[in-house]
Write a protein that binds this DNA or RNA. Structure first.
Lengths: 204, 204
DNA sequence: GTCTATACATCGATAGAC
DNA sequence: GTCTATCGATGTATAGAC
């Protein structure tokens, strides 16, 4: 388990920037080398190919993101607190890594294999056998805290509600004058509206 | 206003396929020519460059999609019917073009200019001055049919809920064994769960 | 309009000096 | 480890015969 050299770190840094901006196919090894202030040959010395470099960058970025995401699932069994905190944390997390959304979208469009692998790794690391959410929702239904519903669909909806504004960010900011998705004001309001909609939507 | 030749249609068809599969940068003119059963030279005869061809394909595809989407907003003022029909229609529409959705979203994260242009054109064509939804929601709030909330956030949430399963489709189908996003069973269930969550979520 | 042949640039990747 | 130089493949685009 090495820490990696300084040059390696510079390459990863530069590669991340370029891959995020241009996508895998649009990215050029020349540009990555340029931003890292080295030459192309050195890129291939450290990482064997463009594919390997991309995989390394993607895995690292996404793994950290998912790790942070799943660490933000509250420990309590109180479904109201779980939902409130998770949505707020999730929105905060995404808003502080807006570029990453594009990266992940790109990868999913390509088939989503890396993402699935990363998810599996995260599950293994945290010892999950299923979405940590799922069980809490099922329990809440059994106890009658929330109305009967399909937990899987609820989770999909919650994630969709949280993540969509950031996916559509350029479009929304272009189509709706004055809106600023990443502004503190919008995020604050968004968290309230999201939680209210979901919470009211699942009352018995 | 010509109808275009048969060859032109073949090219558009092939180009659409390849661009959707590989993205703009990943697409190769050679492959497009191959699928259209012509040679590369003819591509440049009909469309001057790869850029022009891409723009043409994207604009056409997206315009039709948005046109269909906005045509599916029900005419009635009954907010319950509006929501029920719109979500159902929207989910149906997306499920019949899942690759297009992922493509559009990726394109949006690239800057979204084409999309914004297309949106503006659609608004102009239908004579909208704002989201047709917005006014209906505002009226429903004034009449007390639904609780006070921010209409803009509601719309964002509704769209997010509908579209997200298809964005994450490859990931979901990989991570959750047995799930089939585009299957009739899932879609049917999805429509019910989505409407229930939203409708219950906005009750006074 | 459609083809073959080819120009020209750029890509990822490698060889070899230091 | 780091560089220059360059390879072979492939990309977009064009010239010119038919």
């Amino acid at each position: 388990m090495e820490l990696g050299t300084e040059t390696e770190a510079k390459i990863i840094q530069a590669a991340t920037e370029v891959f995020l901006e241009k996508g895998k196919d649009g990215a050029r090894m020349q540009e990555i080398a340029g931003r890292a202030n080295i030459n192309k040959a050195l890129l291939h010395y450290y990482f064997r190919s463009k594919d390997k470099l991309y995989e390394k960058v993607f895995r690292e970025k996404v793994f950290r993101f998912l790790d942070e995401l799943f660490s933000s699932v509250p420990q309590t069994d109180d479904i109201k607190i779980v939902l409130k905190e998770f949505t707020a944390n999730y929105i905060d997390l995404i808003s502080s890594h807006p570029e990453l959304v594009r990266f992940i979208l790109w990868e999913i469009r390509r088939g989503g294999q890396y993402m699935s692998d990363a998810l599996r790794d995260i599950f293994a690391k945290h010892g999950f056998t299923k979405f940590p959410f799922l069980e809490k929702v099922q329990n809440a239904i059994s106890e009658g805290t929330i109305r009967p519903l399909d937990p899987l669909h609820l989770i999909i909806s919650v994630i969709g509600i949280c993540v969509y504004p950031f996916i559509a960010q350029p479009l929304l900011e272009n189509a709706i004058p004055g809106i600023q998705i990443s502004s503190e004001g919008f995020l604050q309001k968004r968290k309230e509206e999201v939680f209210n909609l979901i919470w009211e939507g699942i009352q018995p």
